[in-house]
Design a protein around this nucleic acid. Structure first.
Ligand code: FES
Ligand code: FES
Lengths: 145, 145
DNA sequence: GTATATAGGATCAATCAAGTCCGATTAATC
DNA sequence: GATTAATCGGACTTGATTGATCCTATATAC
């Protein structure tokens, strides 16, 4: 399951919103430029995020997007799955009838474990923490003199 | 990265070969029928497995496929990556230039962790173990009277 | 009411997934 | 050596998905 472009943009967008939460509604254009996202495409992504209840959209002049979920409670998993749908590494786990082998093959269990692990890792990361780390900048990872 | 159909077939094929290792070369048709794989497609998959050094292919009459790697040393990861290529959950990790954001964004680290975890899980499963579990049948998972 | 912005549907090109077809090649057997 | 069995390997097909872009409608601030 490769994170799709739309998912990547969603994360960037929410990261930006998280880092500027105090500013309330922020225009699509600003976000798009700051985070290097095609503005039109961001529109589509935002619609999905809104449907998932993660952001609120305000139309018209001075419109834009606003975070509706607290960044501390917004996990990477919810973001990714809001955009790309629930994560299934293995098709058989998604629709068991796709592999109508005797009952459940031994491989199944491995994929199930892998999937759970992956989802837990993503669920364990909040946008708040990402925003915080991001705010600290690159210094942390490439310390200067 | 959703496990592709080809990957699924590769696993099934190797599972079959592992369970019948004592028989040496086994015809494509037999494998295809037993494991419910389109025979032609199995041909393609087998070629990739051969290129990866996992099986040997014998052409001509009485030809077929033979396991060349010991099932104890053949991991699910090598199989999957032999078919679908190295696993990258996130495009940016694959080609860092794709997201030329300042340096390395905080999200990056999470995906890296997720990817490592996933690969380790798959690397920790050998075909030998899968074959063994498979041989025990469904009894284990749905015990009868 | 006008300027500003997003909504939402349609469309599009490129890519990929999952097969299928078929002539070439290779090996066993008679 | 000819026949037959079986895979190789490249071309092709079909359908879905990705990653956008365009355009009209609609909502809001002023
Ligand atoms: S039954 Fe689910 S992977 Fe085979
Ligand atoms: S730099 Fe790799 S995910 Fe952003």
């Amino acid at each position: 399951m490769r994170l799709t472009r739309a998912g990547e943009y969603a994360i960037r967008c929410l990261l930006y919103l998280s880092m500027h939460r105090d500013r309330g509604i922020i225009g699509r254009k600003e976000i798009a430029e700051a985070m290097d996202i095609p503005a039109q495409f961001l529109g589509k992504v935002a619609q999905q995020l809104a449907r998932a209840g993660i952001i609120a959209i305000r139309q018209g002049a001075q419109g834009g997007y606003e975070l509706v979920t607290r960044p501390e409670e917004l996990t990477l998993l919810s973001v990714v799955e809001a955009i790309d749908g629930e994560i299934f590494l293995n098709d058989c786990i998604h629709r068991p009838e796709s592999c109508d082998r005797q009952c459940i093959c031994s491989v199944h269990l491995v994929w199930e474990k892998a999937r759970t692990q992956l989802r837990e890792t993503l669920a364990g990361t909040t946008l708040a923490r990402l925003a915080e780390e991001e705010a600290q900048g690159c210094a942390k990872r490439s310390p200067g003199p």
